[in-house]
Simulated assay, not measured.
Amino acid sequence: MPTALITGASAGLGAEFARQLADRGADLVLVARSEDALQALAAELRASHGVAVEVLVADLAEEQHVDRVAQRIADAGHPIDLLVNNAGFGLPLHFADNEIADEVRHLRVHVEAPMRLMHAALGAMRGRGGRIINVASVAGFISRSTYSACKAWLIGFSRWANGEYAVDGVTVTALCPGFVHTTFHSRMGLGAGQEGVPRFLWLDAPFVVRQGLRAAARGRSVVIPSLRYKAVVAGSRLVPRALTTRIARRGRM
């Protein structure tokens, strides 16, 4: 059976990726900081789907932890067929007011860790085949402090890598949702209607994950789930950058 490694797997989109992939019969390697949450999810998936589930506790802001995950990806004896780079967290949008240590940690988790894990995956997958899904955001198309900049890098790199390594049998897909009902926002004490964002703009995690898996299967480099967010991205290209920046201060896409 194929094996998928998912970062940020303890909750939110990561846990939903795990459930949908287990439902398809994939074995799993679950990566996150919370061992208790990972073990609970692993037990659930083993019992409900009969798949093999490996737990790997790691903080992707720590270099030695990223090294351990990269080594697991590079293990030719237990190959990874799908890498889902999903781990992430949010910060207040006011960069100058944030602690620089927090911003550096944010950059490591959102850019450095996915880059290093992709490097390990490409080394293991080239010629054999495989898929990489990078969970980005529609924020990557709009100016929104360092979160937007990190996601823009992930989108741009995914687009290039998908074209570059398709000849080797490896696809790379950037999944770019908007606001999703997950613990990403609730961990900050926020939810639908609490960020100045209309309820119709919120997406459900199962829908977002299905769209990501479908796009990866089709070899697409970038996917924006739902017509409403495709319209948001298209509209952002037609208005002055200063205006989109002011609008983007609302919410945490």
Rank of each mutant, 00 (worst) to 15 (best):
L56K: 02
S48M: 05
P79A: 06
A70N: 05
D81T: 10
H49C: 07
S48Q: 15
E54R: 00
A70I: 09
L60I: 15
L83M: 08
A74T: 06
R72Q: 11
A47Q: 13
E63H: 10
L45D: 01
V51E: 01
G50W: 10
V66R: 06
P79E: 12
D59N: 15
A74E: 03
H65L: 03
A76P: 00
E54I: 06
D67A: 14
G50A: 11
A74S: 08
L83S: 13
A61N: 08
E62I: 15
L82T: 13
A58M: 13
L56E: 15
D67L: 05
H49M: 01
A70D: 08
A74V: 02
P79N: 05
E44F: 01
A47C: 04
V57A: 14
H78K: 06
V66G: 01
D67I: 09
A47V: 06
V51D: 04
Q71W: 00
E63W: 04
L83P: 11
L83W: 11
L83Q: 13
L82A: 07
S48L: 07
D59V: 12
G77P: 01
V55I: 15
V69M: 05
G77V: 01
H49W: 07
L45M: 05
I80G: 03
L82R: 14
P79Q: 12
A76C: 04
D81N: 15
A61W: 06
A76M: 08
L60P: 11
I80A: 04
S48W: 05
R68G: 06
R68K: 14
G50E: 09
R46K: 13
V55K: 08
D75F: 02
A47W: 12
V57T: 15
V57F: 09
D75S: 00
Q71V: 10
L82H: 12
R68E: 08
D75L: 02
E54T: 10
V57K: 15
A74D: 02
A76T: 12
V51P: 03
D59H: 11
I73M: 01
E44Q: 11
Q71F: 01
G77K: 02
H78D: 10
H65V: 07
L45Q: 00
H49Y: 13
I73K: 00
V51Q: 02
L56G: 08
A74M: 02
I80Y: 04
L45P: 00
A52V: 08
L83E: 07
D59F: 11
R46A: 02
A58W: 06
H49I: 09
I73C: 01
Q64W: 07
I73H: 00
H49S: 05
V69I: 05
A58F: 07
E63M: 13
G77N: 09
D75Q: 02
V57D: 08
V66T: 11
V57R: 15
G77W: 01
D81A: 13
H78G: 05
D67V: 12
G50F: 10
A52C: 08
A70P: 04
V53G: 09
H65N: 15
D67E: 15
P79T: 11
A70L: 05
A47S: 13
V57P: 08
L45G: 03
A58Y: 09
E54S: 07
R68L: 10
E54L: 05
A47T: 12
Q64H: 14
A52D: 12
A70K: 00
H65Y: 03
V57G: 05
D67F: 11
L45C: 04
R46L: 00
E62P: 04
I73V: 10
R46S: 00
V55T: 14
